[in-house]
Amino acid sequence: MLKIWSMKKEQKDAENAEGHASGGKKKKITAAQLRVQKDLSELSLGDTMKTDFPDPDDILNFVLMIEPDEGMYKGGRFTFDFNINQNFPHDPPKVRCREKIYHPNIDLEGKVCLNILREDWKPVLNLNAVIVGMQFLFLEPNASDPLNKEAAEDLRNNRDGFRRNVRSAMAGSSVKGIAYDRVLS
């Protein structure tokens, strides 16, 4: 301890010699918030995505709207709730689709099967990686990792039939006895 104190003084002297200004106390903004602030400023949303912050002061909870401009889900408008906890970036953000949609990788409760939201999440990934992944799900729905099994089978067996079912689900019709939300904008 004595040693630390004397070494600490030396370090400080060295810093002062280098001309570092130091201003006493520490900030009180949490690490998760700092990281989200940084991630948000690096977000590239393009034309197909929009965010909405119900409370602009709370940057840990926001909404992402995706409007794919190509692919089978073109013309739809999909809303996702992003919920980031204080353990971010150790924990991934929680993402949930508000609408009930016909998609092999999104279940009827809105849960999303995207590897980087779960098993492949790493703290070096950022929010941009997540939204790029989400966008990709609408361009290339993946039949081999199904969360909605019927939809996945449909996609695997009959791509054109699946495409038609996606269109009618997006229009608010029922597919195979399940009523879906209208998402056409």
Partner: peptide, 9 residues
């Protein structure tokens, strides 16, 4: 973590 789809299907 186990992939959600493994758990689901």
């Amino acid at each position: 973590a186990v992939p959600l789809c493994t758990i689901a299907s």
